[in-house]
Computed example of a mutant assay.
Amino acid sequence: MRKRLLAVAAAATAVTGMYAPAALAAVPAGDQDTSFASTVHQGNLAEIAAGQDAQKNAMTSCVKDVGAKLVSDHQKLDADVKAVAAKAKMTLPTAPTAAQQQELKDLQKKAGTAGYDSAWLAAQATAHTKTLALIDTQIRSGTNTALTNAAKKARPIVVMHLDMVRGGNCHAP
């Protein structure tokens, strides 16, 4: 009888251990998580559009190269956010915010000029500084483990992007 109880206890421990990570990943999203996912997704969409615009309208190869890097990285980061949001049954916005869209339109008015490059770099520095603050808040306060892990994974990439545009000077990837 004792051997049977030990076997049942061992099996229960094994099953619980096997499913614990899945249970942690399924933690429902709180308000912080939902806000983070929506805001970061819109930021990714805005960064992808801005990077594509830089590839087309920048005057220097450095800004064009940084734009290409932003597109590539933000597509990957957004795929992570969308996957986590889907599992948590979060609905994400379908476009950047109106302010982000207007900022890009204003920037496009300078297309093909030296002013475009400096304005683009400044806009990217501001956007990435805000994104870094959002990531840090998610890491501190998020309750959805998978989303917080995605934020931790994104942090060094956003820091690298910020380093490429900081101070209005382009630093090639």
Rank of each mutant, 00 (worst) to 15 (best):
S38I: 02
L162I: 08
L162D: 14
N149V: 11
V27G: 00
A146C: 09
D80E: 15
D106G: 06
V71D: 11
V165T: 15
A122Q: 11
A10R: 06
D78R: 05
R155V: 04
R166S: 15
G168Q: 11
M59L: 11
D65N: 15
G112D: 13
R166V: 09
M160W: 11
R140H: 10
A29Q: 04
K87W: 00
A125F: 06
P28A: 08
K153G: 13
N44C: 12
L45S: 00
N44W: 06
K64P: 03
K153A: 15
A85C: 08
T13L: 15
D33T: 03
L70G: 02
A7W: 04
K105F: 05
P156S: 12
S141M: 12
G17P: 03
L147A: 04
L147G: 07
A95C: 11
T131S: 10
K64G: 04
Y19P: 03
K3N: 13
I135P: 00
V40T: 12
A88K: 14
A119N: 10
T39D: 03
A22T: 07
T148N: 10
A7K: 10
A154T: 10
Q55T: 08
G43Q: 02
H161P: 02
A154W: 00
A150G: 08
F36I: 04
H161W: 09
A29G: 08
P93S: 07
A88G: 06
V165P: 01
A119P: 02
Q42T: 12
L45F: 04
I157G: 07
T94D: 14
T145V: 15
A11F: 05
L121T: 10
G167Q: 09
E47S: 08
L107C: 05
E103N: 09
K76G: 04
V165I: 13
A12F: 05
Q55P: 07
N57A: 11
T91I: 07
H74D: 00
T16N: 09
P156K: 14
A172M: 06
